[in-house]
Amino acid sequence: MKIVREWCMYCGECAGVCPRCLIEVGEATITFDESSCKDCEICVQACPVRALIKEE
């Protein structure tokens, strides 16, 4: 599971690097298709403001 912190700015960088194309970023929304997520955390590392965290 991913937690998106409230300071996400919907820039879409995480969506671009997700190798499985699971992240949809709207103008002020972000959703993950968690069912196929492999928890590689590439999206977590890419975020310029560290707005993503993985919930254990």
Binding site: G12, G16, C18, C21, Q45
Partner: peptide
């Protein structure tokens, strides 16, 4: 940089970290 449309269409547009 999201480049999802290409992937929906079958192109390899995911950006390597």
């Amino acid at each position: 940089p999201e480049s999802r449309v290409g992937r929906w269409g079958g192109l390899k547009t995911a950006v390597k970290p």
